[in-house]
Design a protein around this nucleic acid. Structure first.
Lengths: 228, 228
DNA sequence: AGGTTCGGCAAACAGTTGTTTACTGAATGG
DNA sequence: CCATTCAGTAAACAACTGTTTGCCGAACCT
């Protein structure tokens, strides 16, 4: 909490990012965080479109008017949540693609990483799944744009693998989108398995097994592809 | 509209479904329809969770209290919309699977049927995409159950094709789910292409082309599958 | 013809909503 | 140390919400 500054000018604090330099900013960030967390928690069982300003501020322990010090809109809060959610997703995808290894190991690791990611970022994943086709246009577009960048990244990574020798740019993109869509579907399925874990504990494992088989089938098609 | 009954008992009207026998029932069905249509129209740019009883009845030209003569809940209205939406989907899937033909023709026809279906049932498809992971549990479950039945139907149909000789029940199911997921993703993509048709008229065609390629790749993997 | 059923209505209920207003008081910076 | 900035507050605004109530009148059945 206390943060003595010595003789340094507040703006030149070495490795600090430009945010949270003073006590003021830090406190503001804290409130902002509270709003985001409250929002994410409330969005566990409702949509962004049905969320209310008062509802969020109440859950965050702030007065209604305080909300407008941070966001003009609830849509803006939604967009902020999108950025958060997809930042962690980006890290995830990289951790799959960097390591080399045979197709089998790659598949196992991919499914594993997805499963763990859903477990550890349940609220964010649920938010993405829910709002991807949700009622708030700006949020929808933000998610879509980011998933597109995803596919591009995956496509580039696929191009580096020896299996993809001779593949056209378009074919690579098509395959990348297939993978991304499959990842999204699988993540959503894992999520629903988590929510129903009490009544059907085996579901998560079945989804993982199915996903692995499907990826194997796709990778089989990939090996025999002769170009479009 | 007019439907004279002659000497027949109202309940034995040959090929008529048990609904809409009398004037009373017919008028009630009309109001119900108005509610469903109004709901579907309003759900074009909001979620079911943020829909209001008053909002729907206002749009349907009824008094708020009238709503409760038809549905106990807005969730119930949602479930009714799910049934409607998926009935037409079932017809669609059948029209793809019945006709024989080589893999290429089958793929072309499948993508074609999906594209046309999204165009002609835009509101229903949007509703399904939006509420599949939406904030209303009962609706989510209804959609999920129906998609599961879908996959079973597709799996059974796949088993009859000569390409699937020697496939285990589980592998067939896995493939069916892959197809269904891909169909859902593609439909959602077509939908978003329609909404953005003004600013990017070529998008719909690109999605169709990509979907065809992806299906070809999957079908390639299928031909080389050796069992799990 | 007469009594019954029942879909739809207006009105009232107590809450909730988003947003603006004027304000307070602590962190800020010269 | 003193003037300024500004995150957060309480209060007020009109508008809206879901649901229940009692009632009406047309369709229904016998």
């Amino acid at each position: 909490m206390n943060h003595t500054e010595g003789a340094e000018s507040p703006r030149s604090a070495g490795a600090e990012q430009p945010r949270t330099v003073g006590v003021r900013q830090a406190q503001k960030q804290q409130s902002r965080r509270a709003l985001l967390d409250a929002g994410l928690r409330l969005l566990a069982d409702q949509n962004l479109a049905s969320l209310g300003v008062r509802e969020v501020t109440r859950a965050a322990g702030l007065s209604p008017a305080a909300f407008y010090r941070h966001f003009p809109d609830l849509a803006a809060l939604g967009v902020a949540l999108v950025e958060e959610s997809l930042a962690s997703l980006h890290l995830m995808i990289r951790s799959v693609l960097v390591g080399a290894g045979g197709a089998e190991e790659l598949i196992d690791r991919a499914v594993d990483v997805i499963q763990r990611h859903v477990r550890e970022n349940r609220a964010h994943v649920r938010f993405l799944a829910r709002e991807r086709h949700g009622g708030v246009r700006r949020v929808r577009e933000a998610i879509d744009a980011e998933l597109g960048r995803f596919a591009a990244e995956v496509g580039a990574a696929l191009g580096l693998q020896p299996v993809s020798a001779g593949w056209s740019e378009g074919d690579l993109r098509m395959l990348a989108e297939l993978y991304v869509d499959h990842m999204v579907s699988t993540a959503a399925a894992f999520l629903e398995a988590l929510e129903a874990q009490e009544t059907d504990p085996g579901r998560e494992g079945r989804i993982a097994a199915t996903a692995r088989l499907q990826l194997r089938l796709i990778s089989l098609g990939r090996r025999h592809w002769q170009g479009s």
